[in-house]
């Protein structure tokens, strides 16, 4: 019924496939066994070489030659590993050695590759080694989001005015991955971005502003106050919420006043953010308004209002105790739960 020849072909193909699979599998195992041992030896040699090069006064040509002979992959791993643990002159010296073994030239070439994975590798190496190189700035507009994100990660350690400007422009990046990396990079740059970010927030609205407000909220600089007050009136609830978070982080009387107004915002997440902000500021004059928010129709608002009252201290606790005996069972339950929380619990 079945041609013997067909059967022979099928059987041969399957046996061939199995033998091929077994061959590849076990050969790869053997290759790993051999290379892992060799790589381990090379890695140890690279670490020792780097340790000597970084700690001794003069740079030895022999050591550099020895490092050059180590395969590129091992070199990269060793340099990145050592780089994570160095700062200042130690890192400068490491970069010098990397330059001597042509590692940085290689990274630059990778950054110019037509293939995104290579550009990513190049950017990762330059970021890992904290190398200040304009070639990475070109990658801010790379077509691949992973490369843009990596370039943003590099930017965190190189906060020049041009880089900051590019980062702020990238707050509106369509890719979430790149946007997150940009926000994180701006945050890591610290105080230096406060001025340009404040200017950015004063002139932008919508999602770029929301993105910037998240960074500003974590930086909590008073320079953001005018922008935060303006954006707390935005049409988008996401922007108002981020502005409320920022106002809570900044503090000050105008912030408290606006946050108290935001307790009546039509959007519940904005009301919750306002309550949270007043709690962060420990703004006791707003305790009665926060106590009113314990009667809010939304769980999240009631909870954040109760937590804010707890954060305020004695006056807030007094309002929580009153709420337990009040006529609103929802407010009473929430107040009781928050009063029951151990001191260590934050939410």
């Amino acid at each position: 019924m079945v041609d013997e020849a067909v059967l022979d072909v099928v059987m041969s193909v399957e046996i061939g496939l199995l033998v091929l699979a077994a061959g590849v599998y076990f050969s790869h195992g053997l290759w790993l066994f051999v290379t892992q041992k060799r790589t381990l030896r090379q890695m140890t040699a690279a670490r020792e070489s780097l340790a000597r090069l970084l700690t001794r006064g003069a740079v030895s040509v022999e050591e550099i030659d020895a490092l050059r002979r180590i395969p590129r992959g091992v070199q990269v791993a060793a340099f990145l590993e050592v780089s994570r643990n160095l700062t200042g002159t130690g890192k400068d010296r490491l970069r010098f050695v990397a330059r001597e073994v042509s590692l940085l030239d290689r990274a630059r070439k990778l950054c110019e590759s037509r293939r995104w994975a290579r550009r990513l590798r190049g950017a990762r190496l330059l970021a890992g080694m904290d190398v200040s190189d304009p070639i990475v700035e070109k990658l801010f507009s790379d077509p691949h989001p992973a490369v843009r994100a990596q370039a943003a990660e590099w930017a965190a350690a190189h906060p020049s005015p041009t880089v900051i400007k590019s980062m702020l422009a990238m707050l509106a990046d369509p890719a979430t991955q790149a946007r997150f990396a940009v926000q994180d990079a701006l945050l890591r740059m610290g105080d230096i971005v406060a001025e340009p970010l404040a200017a950015f927030l004063e002139t932008h609205s919508g999602s770029p502003a929301e993105s910037g407000l998240r960074v500003a909220g974590a930086l909590a600089e008073s320079r953001f106050l005018p922008a935060a007050l303006r954006l707390s009136l935005a049409n988008e609830s996401g922007v108002r919420m981020a502005a409320a978070n920022l106002l809570g982080a900044i503090g000050s009387a105008p912030s408290a006043e606006r946050l108290t107004e935001l307790l009546k915002d039509p959007e519940s997440r904005v009301r919750a953010a306002a309550a949270n902000g007043l709690g962060r500021m420990q703004h006791w004059p707003a305790a009665s308004q926060l106590a009113e928010s314990l009667r809010d129709s939304t769980w999240r608002v009631r909870r954040d209002a109760a937590l804010a009252l707890r954060a305020i201290g004695a006056p807030g606790t007094l309002f929580l105790r009153r709420a337990i005996k009040g006529d609103d069972p929802f407010a009473a339950d929430m107040a009781q739960q928050i009063l029951d929380l151990p001191a260590t619990a934050t939410g």
Partner: peptide, 24 residues
């Protein structure tokens, strides 16, 4: 029997080969 052999090779043999590639 040749058909039976073909049946087993198709039903099980190919599956085993594909599983082996997963290990790879």
């Amino acid at each position: 029997w040749s058909f039976a052999a073909l049946f087993f090779l198709t039903a099980y043999g190919l599956g085993t080969a594909l599983t082996a590639f997963t290990l790879i």
